[in-house]
Design a protein around this nucleic acid. Structure first.
Lengths: 109, 109
DNA sequence: ATAAGACTTGTCATTTTTTGACAAATCTAA
DNA sequence: TTAGATTTGTCAAAAAATGACAAGTCTTAT
């Protein structure tokens, strides 16, 4: 997916010929706020992902991955994080994983 | 840097033989909260980075990079983001950059 | 031209999350 | 033991995210 999550929702919505008001209702959401979400002014609330998946018949896991990559991509963009720094960030994530592993085995003892 | 930001602060602090209370005072911060920061229970507040850099004679830009890579690394870890997904996130960041570029040139016209 | 529906924008109250502060507990070394 | 260092728990305050509504613009059909 080469769009923002908001653009993706807009795509799904227009494909099905739904208005903002119609989709917003299905999502228990104000149409004004959905508009902001599609335009990237606000974030889609993670807890509505299951509903979104249902409405459009999408796989929840895949949709969730769209979501987190969008969120991360946004942070990467906002922090002007270069590829080089992103690599460092990835290593730090890896480090946290080993920390957690060690913690688990400690508990086991 | 192959540690969390909290561990890094602890390293800097103990190298200089400072107590939590002493460093916390320099940072305008409660020692109890600094303890939580070093132990990864709370986040270091970004607005204290300049102070932190001064106290330990560090380059602010570099310290800032330590900070954002730690923050991103934490998110990557928390979301169980695989390398593959991280690549997608990076592409999405790239996409946002082009969006922004187009916006700029639009403005110019 | 204008009326209706679709969408956008601005604002503010509410909710949620993060932070600051303090008290009390634990831990460690003299 | 006891003094200092650190950790943990809790709660109020501050900050950020979200929900809701009013009013605006834009488009299209009549």
């Amino acid at each position: 997916m080469k769009t923002t999550f908001g653009e993706y929702i807009r795509l799904l919505r227009t494909e099905k010929d739904l208005t903002l008001t119609q989709l917003a209702a299905k999502l228990n959401l104000d149409s004004a706020n959905l508009s902001k979400i599609e335009n990237g002014i606000r974030d889609f609330d993670e807890k509505r992902l299951p509903k979104l998946a249902n409405i459009f018949g999408l796989n929840l896991k895949e949709l969730g991955e769209e979501y987190i990559t969008d969120q991360l991509g946004k942070r990467i963009y906002e922090t002007n994080c270069t590829k080089q720094l992103l690599k460092v960030a990835e290593e730090k994530a890896e480090y946290r994983r080993t920390l957690n592993k060690n913690l688990q085995t400690e508990k086991a003892v």
